[in-house]
Write a protein that binds this DNA or RNA. Structure first.
Length: 210
DNA sequence: GTGCTGATAGTCT
DNA sequence: GACTATCAGCACG
């Protein structure tokens, strides 16, 4: 079904438990409006961070730093950080957990919807796209930020106003949602949280990060 | 298909 | 000074 790129998700959508929110973000569409084109992708993979004690969460220490301040902001805003010196990653800020611990949802992969040409150009991928190269457009947190031209300028930005919004689309049935451990965590520093199944994916999608 | 390596710079100790 | 919520490219089977 074709998403309505005008139907922006309201603040109320973000006002609930981060895990419920993460499940319901699956299937919604991230829309990036820029001069060249409107680019959009359907969310098919997310991970929850924080909300409770979670050493893998950047905000686990409980107070904001210059980098993590946005994670302590209003639900439905963006937290964008740089990783490995070269990639930016987009998170959706979620409400804090019961003990006031900050929480956010990392957007890990999207299924291309519109603006494929512009996204391919930003990613340095040759056109025309094939099945294989279209998969490479948005199948990872660093990749999707590159394709949608999302950088740390969006840190703290509201996801309910252009040029970056999340719009409504058909929900994903529970039967199609899979959970698994989060990607890239280090057991030495993250302990048991390394194995929490806090990664939510649309199991039927061929556009996942792995 | 799997697995390893290097690139790269900001953040916190 | 150590570490990192990654990716592309290459080797290998």
């Amino acid at each position: 079904m074709e998403p309505n790129l005008e139907e922006i998700l309201p603040s109320k959508f973000y006002e609930r438990d981060a895990h419920d929110l993460a499940r319901d973000l699956l299937g919604k569409v991230l829309v990036r409006v820029c001069d060249e084109a409107t680019c959009a992708g359907r969310i098919v993979e997310v991970e929850v961070y924080g909300g409770v004690d979670d050493p893998s969460c950047h905000a686990d220490r409980g107070y904001p730093t210059e980098r993590t301040a946005a994670m302590f902001g209003r639900p439905g805003t963006a937290y964008v950080y740089r990783i490995y010196g070269m990639y930016d990653c987009l998170n959706v800020v979620a409400p804090p957990g019961p003990e006031g611990k900050a929480s956010a949802i990392l957007v890990r992969a999207l299924e291309p919807v519109t603006g494929l040409d512009v996204m391919a150009e930003r990613r340095g991928i040759a056109r025309p796209l094939t099945g294989k190269t279209s998969r490479a457009l948005l199948s990872g947190p660093g990749k999707l930020c590159q394709a949608l031209a999302i950088d740390r300028g969006f840190d703290g930005a509201d996801l309910q106003s252009h040029p970056l919004v999340i719009v409504d689309a058909a929900p994903v049935p529970d039967a199609e949602i899979a959970t698994s451990p989060r990607i890239g965590l280090n057991p030495a520093t993250c302990g048991a949280s390394t194995y929490f199944e806090w990664r939510y994916t649309v199991a039927t999608s061929r556009f996942l990060s792995r």
